[in-house]
Write a protein that binds this DNA or RNA. Structure first.
Lengths: 205, 205, 205, 205
DNA sequence: AATGAATGAGACTTCATTCAT
DNA sequence: TATGAATGAAGTCTCATTCAT
């Protein structure tokens, strides 16, 4: 309690550096980003960077962690009307974030060479989401909402589609007229339609 | 014509270097790959590299070009029974290649910072495929096979799904029991089912 | 006089810092020691270090000075029975201190690059001891106890032997079964025997 | 055989760099020496240094190795008349080298923090010499030439004396009028006299 | 008087590219 | 044409020292 003000200053400085790092990484990627540039964007000296993070890699991990937390937080807020709506909103979130930050592919790529990014981003966030999706699909199949597909493959197909769109966005391959929300709805429509049980219920999602 | 033999030798040497580069890039990524290692794998000196390619970036472009050609060639060979089968075979191809070479994400990533990779890989190969897919979907909608979805979005959804699976594979998130062929069939089943006109034809895919 | 208490506090703080510095220097050497670590061991902030010492070099000088004083104080306390015993006790002191602190070589080494260490440690302490030794030898030769060797060389030989043992100790080359006292006696035996006048007196040490 | 000329060039370049490193280390010590300065003295670029040595530490090891080899080579050449003469010549060698190169204390000191220097310099060279000296002393005691002292301590005393003189020289504490040869003879005289069996043989050494 | 975050100079090291052989 | 040693720019990181609080 006594240290609150200083604690706040430290936290603020950390955030300021992480923001700068996220910005530079999203523009240049990890390898092309220089600590010099990150320091400049954060408006601190290069030395200060190393008072808050052990090394450049740690900066990437910090950004990845924040990014993963953001995904989780986004998911927690969703208040869906049924699972189809949940999917649409989740996609809309991802598409919106992708447009804002363009960091997805940096993590995806670096996680191949960087074990910590892999741990914090891929394993914690992605595995978690895929596993959850798979369980949801199992449940929906059991209750007859979805048809009898392989839940493992279905869950991965959904994740793959979302990841693929993120990649397309970062490549500048956008769907010009579509808002994240509309796109989320339309992509969900295709996937959901591909999965739901047609025999039992007319189209109602 | 007089130079045919010499040309062949040059082409062979180029291919030998490109193979080495593809190998090293797929293992290490572009930035972590060194010209030294590429030269060693190609069994030539570093100097020789620069007799055949202007610089390291040119090596990447060369590999990207070859990779894009490979995709096109794979596509040309497919002899499908209907479009759904075409899709399944195309996916199986991509999945199989992804397992073999793990170069997909290197191009995807580097194309964000490297304009030439972007041109040769993203624009030439991917745009071409997406445009073709979009046209096919338009046709299939017109003839009543597919329901009335937005062809732009449908085409991007398909591409996104395939790219997403490629990314998942490179991350080591695999579907253990599935061969590329089986996986292609199952993913196609979901997407095709999501797109086809349900009113006209009973479930048959 | 009015400031006595304050002076004492300052002196105590100085001593506390010097102790920490001596400890860290003896573990890491001068260059590898960081002001950060010294401050931590002294349980003060880095800033405080600089309120008591102008810079890192000054810390080393302070430690060297204290070390030189320690040698002098050790010498003053000795109550020998004859010069041979004086030698044995002096050696025992040096050997014991060497085991305790392992600072000898740090000063010896740094004095080559650091003029102040040189002045306080080498010139003040070592020159003084060598000069005194030389004078003692002259006297002992004059009175017939020692044979007619070159006093300059004899004095340097003694000093060299003691320094050499200090170095051996810091390298971990020890004489396992020997206490400092026993070792002092035995080494003195060799040197004294090498110097004393054999003709005049039978072996009596 | 075919590569002889190139091999020679490489060896020459290595020697040139090692010479430069030895020079700078002897002037500045290891830590204060910069790769920049070594490169300048060697008249190559800093990058070239790293074509021949993995890192700065490797340069030190290289120099230490060469230095240890030099000691051994010096020893092998000696053609003594009796062990006392051997000692005198060995000392003269060490004293002469010390004056030339002033590297002794650099190795001695760095070996405390650098395991490889320790291995190549201290363990290989010094342990070897001490062990050999100890054995010689045992033999000389057995044959009655030396009196019945502890061979372990006697051997260490000799080594310590030589090391101590090396240190004194590097500190600038010299015996002005003495050549290495004369000094070797005189120091040997003291030590030998301190060790030899007085009863059996009159003073003759 | 004490603190410790900020600084920035400068160290070591890597590696794409060149060029004499 | 092939070689690979040499280059040097540029990057990451350390740490003694300062100074606002």
């Amino acid at each position: 309690m006594i240290e609150t003000r200083r604690d706040r200053r430290i936290a603020a400085r950390q955030a300021q550096i992480l923001d700068a790092a996220a910005h530079v990484f999203s523009q240049k990627g990890y390898q092309n980003a220089t600590t010099k540039e990150i320091a400049e964007v954060a408006d601190v000296s290069e030395g200060t960077l190393y008072n808050y993070f052990a090394n450049k890699r740690d900066l990437l991990i910090g950004v990845a962690r924040a990014y993963a937390d953001e995904i989780m937080a986004d998911m927690a807020i969703i208040q869906p009307e049924g699972y189809e709506d949940y999917l649409a909103q989740f996609m809309a979130n991802r598409f919106r974030r992708g447009r804002e930050r363009r960091l997805f592919m940096v993590f995806l790529y670096e996680s191949r060479w960087n074990e910590d990014v892999r741990r914090y981003y891929v394993e914690e966030a992605m595995h978690h989401i895929i596993a959850q999706t798979e369980q949801n699909i199992r449940d929906l199949i059991a209750q007859g909402t979805l048809r009898d597909v392989d839940p493992t493959i279905a869950a991965r197909t959904m994740s793959a589609t979302i990841m693929g769109f993120a990649a397309l966005f970062e490549l500048g391959i956008t769907v010009n007229h579509s808002s994240p929300e509309l796109l989320g709805t339309q992509v969900t429509d295709i996937l959901w339609n591909g999965l739901r049980n047609q025999e039992e219920n007319g189209r109602e999602s």
